[in-house]
Design a protein around this nucleic acid. Structure first.
Lengths: 225, 225
DNA sequence: CCCTTTATCGTCACGATGACGATAAGCTCC
DNA sequence: GGAGCTTATCGTCATCGTGACGATAAAGGG
């Protein structure tokens, strides 16, 4: 392998969450050149003896303090155009993480500052705008045929909370009655906890947790406007 | 980037085609160690000033002699576990290519030998069995919600040829009448050429070419056995 | 107790689909 | 040239999923 050693490899993260009718992404402000002071996706170099997935998990933990297996993490795509990093030849393996909104502040970050930024953000370093767009599009598409919307919710949630996730990520309004029928009627999507929770107003709602299904048959369809 | 230069990057290809009721993958027999003599996915190192996609296109051309934009090529996933290549730290960016069956023999290959091998193949070098499985699963899934089955067909094809692609990739039997209705009724999936072609037996079939649609709404659904 | 709000259940029409019959348009064979 | 075979294409019908939307249930606030 001494013939082609000229690559560095990073694992960068598109970490999305839903809070207050907004889809937000975790960004860090770069403390060093290049792009010093600019927003960028969190991430870092894959260690010499580390698997790609392990690097992504490590970066996610470092940036969010997450240790418990909550939310969802999957590989997104890889980006390796020459010149995308002015320092040299860098291939970035991007990962997509979907998390419930964390009440605790973003801790343990070694970057200058980390923040949840509403979409769309401003300018991003490197080709991170493209990576972010790919991640958001992946998330939007996956809500259709997978139960991943539950990754944006806490362990126990109401149907209304789940619907608000869909409405926020898709930027669309869904009929509460049809949504309720669809979700509770799809086997394995959600399972009733058996308890209810009172909201600020109105009738208390049943609590659910995510079910065992990995795929939705038939899928949730985005409204055609 | 001098801190972490210890990676080599390859672009490897999962090239699939449909021929005679069989799904086949393009494999090369390795001429050098490690895994000398074993079947492997075609591919090679990304050049120092080459984009990942460009490397995949170059490898595809070198292995198949393809120059015209036929079929389909997309990034699949990246694989970088330590130890997956005994020679050192290698990250492989895998690509998935779907091609019509090429009447010309596989030309221009710089490997010892290249062949179309029916699935499932025997043992493969490195972690290529896993990469191949991921590629096949991606292809199977994409036939549901995209018109990519046309990538397995020549520029002009009949509905029956297209149905045989689905049946082969999914290993399922589809009702010819319902399939015909579904395909011709989905806007942008296929467009009639206006001519017909006579098969060996039976009524001649109309010829179609692929339409402009990128997504199928609603999707083709795999039969639930 | 009435009103507001939200959760949940019901109803109905319509479009998509699976099962399958019917017809069309070539061929071969006699 | 017609019978018979094969495949392509069209039609029919019951069923299911879905969008639109009415109705009811269950809380709190005045």
């Amino acid at each position: 392998m001494a013939d082609f050693p000229a690559f560095s490899v990073t694992a960068d993260l598109v970490v999305l969450t839903v809070q207050g009718n907004e889809l937000r992404v975790l960004l860090v402000r770069r403390g060093i050149e290049p792009y010093r002071g600019a927003w960028a996706l969190p991430g870092g170099f894959v260690l010499p003896d580390e698997d790609l997935d392990a690097a992504a998990v490590r970066e996610l933990r470092e940036e969010t303090g997450l240790t418990a297996p909550v939310g969802h993490l999957e590989q997104l795509a890889s980006y390796g155009a020459p010149g995308r990093d002015p320092r040299g030849r860098v291939v970035t393996v991007a990962y997509l993480a979907l998390l419930p909104h964390l009440p605790a502040p973003v801790a343990g970050s070694d970057a200058e500052g980390a923040a949840w930024v509403a979409l769309p953000p401003g300018e991003l370093a490197f080709d991170h705008a493209r990576i972010l767009a790919d991640g958001v599009e992946r998330a939007r598409a996956k809500l259709e045929y997978s139960p991943l919307a539950t990754a944006f919710c806490p362990p126990e949630f109401t149907i209304t909370e789940l619907r608000e996730v869909y409405e926020t990520v898709w930027d669309a309004r869904l009929d509460p009655r049809n949504f309720h029928r669809k979700v509770t009627g799809t086997p394995g999507f959600v399972e009733p906890v058996g308890r209810s929770i009172a909201a600020e107003r109105g009738r208390p709602a049943q609590l659910f947790r995510r079910g065992p299904a990995r795929l939705l048959h038939p899928p949730m369809l985005r409204p055609t406007p």
